[in-house]
Deep mutational scan, measured.
Amino acid sequence: MLDDRARMEAAKKEKVEQILAEFQLQEEDLKKVMRRMQKEMDRGLRLETHEEASVKMLPTYVRSTPEGSEVGDFLSLDLGGTNFRVMLVKVGEGEEGQWSVKTKHQMYSIPEDAMTGTAEMLFDYISECISDFLDKHQMKHKKLPLGFTFSFPVRHEDIDKGILLNWTKGFKASGAEGNNVVGLLRDAIKRRGDFEMDVVAMVNDTVATMISCYYEDHQCEVGMIVGTGCNACYMEEMQNVELVEGDEGRMCVNTEWGAFGDSGELDEFLLEYDRLVDESSANPGQQLYEKLIGGKYMGELVRLVLLRLVDENLLFHGEASEQLRTRGAFETRFVSQVESDTGDRKQIYNILSTLGLRPSTTDCDIVRRACESVSTRAAHMCSAGLAGVINRMRESRSEDVMRITVGVDGSVYKLHPSFKERFHASVRRLTPSCEITFIESEEGSGRGAALVSAVACKKACMLGQ
């Protein structure tokens, strides 16, 4: 009897593995994704193909990295998701002549009506938060230079001027797309009239992360975010950046690689679950690469896999709870928690219980395998993109072996128990001629924006502006 049951459990697990095998990517698959990513990057950089390229390769006008001589107080704003952060950054000489960066910050959550109302409502709310922060720190009387981390696709015309191309991540505030974001912020500050600010720089969160990590390690020339969304930036040779005049030196390019796949480059790798996630998203047909990796989508992918296993009578005796059938019910943090389970399955059992399920031991094991399959594919897909960037940098610099540091931020990278190990191992397999160091950014977005502002202020002083 026991043997029969054991055989049935083994057969069930084997069927589960057959279904989950769809998520496995072979090294040849990853090399294919990497080569296609490089081709799209090239198209994004070139003037004649930029418009139709899915990977936009947006110039950021960040050319210099901090040298350690900029000092002063800077205000930093960070808008990239449902939370908005205001930070005071003091850049100065530390002990023994070292450079020191001290920060104080406060988080504000953005109400739904500000995210989806008008641009005026959104930026009025942001300036209200700045006003509140300055009151708390008794700094209303000071006109501070301000660095703005704005983590949406922007076409820069200068370091302090950028046109919002399109909202992502659930934002829909009308009247912002096609307009200068810094102008919208300046107008809102003017409307309030109770404080003055000098907006000197606007950067993407990947750029802010790279600059913040450069402060720790001067070989950091790539910034990457794996959180709600997924994106990367890197220092490109100016001669390859056709959208900006000049051939000397390097400029940081914001790849906006989340949109890779929007022209069909990933079609052969998309599964039924991916198509369902895409169809029910706020932007169907867009940001397809990001939807395979980002935390906004990972939990939902797992939920759809679990429903398939229920329908195949391989999980929960073929019956799903009402909660499990509800879109968004299986949160991405559950994926991390399930994979963090120590082996007694308590954590998995508790999560499934909150979803109205009474799982068996085998159910718990199957749910864990589903989570591992989805998150491992995410790590491997992400590795193909980064390997594409790094191999490109090595080739354009004609280096036999390139040493490089990548600064990384984002909740999936930082909080998932195995993502970074799987990701690092896969990147290294795909970049055999590179020695890569990964560092995690601390308060990256805010500190990085302030350091970019410090560079901009120093330049302005040198130019006598």
Rank of each mutant, 00 (worst) to 15 (best):
E248K: 11
I366H: 04
E22R: 11
C382T: 10
K90H: 05
F133H: 03
I366P: 00
G223R: 01
Q465V: 05
L77T: 07
F74L: 09
I211W: 10
H380A: 15
F269N: 05
G261E: 01
T206C: 12
C382F: 02
S100N: 10
T65Y: 03
L20K: 00
G261H: 03
R186D: 06
E322N: 09
F423T: 04
L357Y: 11
Y215N: 04
F330G: 01
Y61C: 12
E256S: 14
L134T: 03
G81A: 15
V226G: 03
H424N: 02
S426P: 02
D198V: 03
E279L: 12
H424R: 05
E372Y: 03
L357E: 09
I163N: 14
K56C: 03
L79M: 13
G294K: 04
I351Q: 03
T60Y: 02
G193W: 03
A232W: 06
G258M: 06
D135S: 11
T206E: 03
K346V: 05
L352P: 00
S340C: 09
P359L: 01
D363F: 00
L430K: 00
L164H: 14
R46Y: 03
V367Y: 02
R447E: 13
Q337D: 05
E112D: 04
S321R: 12
L463T: 10
D160R: 10
E440G: 10
G92H: 06
F438G: 00
T49C: 05
F195S: 08
N166G: 14
F74Y: 15
E245G: 11
P59K: 02
E319A: 10
D29Y: 01
D194A: 10
A460L: 10
R345V: 14
S109L: 11
L415V: 06
L185V: 01
M210L: 07
Y108S: 02
R358L: 03
L77P: 03
K15D: 09
S69I: 12
Y234H: 10
M298T: 05
V16L: 15
K15F: 09
E322D: 10
M139I: 15
T405A: 08
C364S: 09
D73V: 01
S340P: 01
I163L: 15
L301Y: 09
E312R: 13
D29A: 15
F171Y: 14
D311Q: 06
L45R: 03
V86E: 05
Y297S: 09
A454F: 11
E177L: 11
M57L: 04
S360E: 13
Q18I: 15
L314H: 07
D365I: 07
E300G: 02
C364Y: 05
D365L: 04
L25I: 08
T342S: 08
G175P: 09
E22Y: 07
E319F: 10
D205Q: 04
D400C: 14
T228C: 12
C129A: 13
E51T: 13
Q106G: 08
V89A: 09
R36N: 11
F133R: 01
V62S: 02
V91W: 04
E128Y: 06
S411W: 12
L30C: 13
P432I: 13
T326M: 10
P145F: 04
R43T: 03
Y273G: 02
E395C: 10
D341E: 09
E248N: 14
T354S: 11
D73W: 01
V310R: 02
Q219P: 07
V207G: 01
N391I: 07
T65V: 15
R5E: 14
K169C: 08
G249F: 02
T437H: 03
H416F: 15
A11F: 06
M139R: 03
G97K: 11
A454P: 03
S445Q: 15
R250E: 01
V455M: 15
L243I: 12
T376A: 09
K102V: 07
D132Q: 04
R85I: 11
A232D: 04
E242G: 04
G258D: 09
T60S: 06
M34R: 05
E245C: 10
S411P: 13
G72V: 03
G94M: 05
R63L: 10
F438Q: 00
A21I: 00
M87V: 12
R394E: 06
Q286D: 06
S353H: 11
V199L: 11
K15T: 15
I19S: 04
V86Q: 06
L75R: 02
R429I: 10
V401T: 11
Y125I: 09
T49V: 04
A425V: 06
Q106T: 13
C434D: 08
R250H: 11
F133C: 02
T103H: 13
G170P: 07
I110V: 09
H156C: 09
K169R: 11
P153T: 13
G385Y: 02
K15Q: 10
S373A: 09
D400M: 09
G72M: 00
Q347M: 15
T332S: 10
K90Q: 12
V91Y: 05
C461G: 15
V310N: 09
K458A: 08
K90N: 05
V408I: 14
R275D: 15
T149Y: 07
P284C: 15
N166A: 12
N283I: 12
S336H: 05
I19P: 02
L292G: 03
A425K: 03
E442G: 02
G464E: 07
S426N: 14
R308G: 06
A114Y: 08
G94C: 08
L324Q: 00
M210R: 01
E339Y: 03
A176Q: 13
V253P: 00
I19T: 14
L386K: 00
D29V: 12
M402G: 10
L47S: 10
Q239P: 08
I159L: 13
S151V: 09
R397V: 03
E96G: 13
T149A: 09
S375N: 13
M8N: 11
D341K: 10
E268I: 02
S353Q: 04
D363R: 00
K104Q: 13
G258T: 03
E395L: 10
H416A: 03
M115P: 03
S453N: 07
G356T: 09
G81E: 09
V305N: 01
A370T: 09
S212E: 07
D365H: 12
V253C: 05
H141K: 13
T149R: 06
R43F: 12
M402Y: 07
G258H: 01
F84V: 14
E27M: 02
K143A: 03
D205E: 14
I390H: 01
L184V: 09
V226C: 06
V305K: 01
G117V: 02
L288A: 11
G117H: 09
K190L: 10
F152R: 13
H105A: 05
S100A: 10
A188M: 03
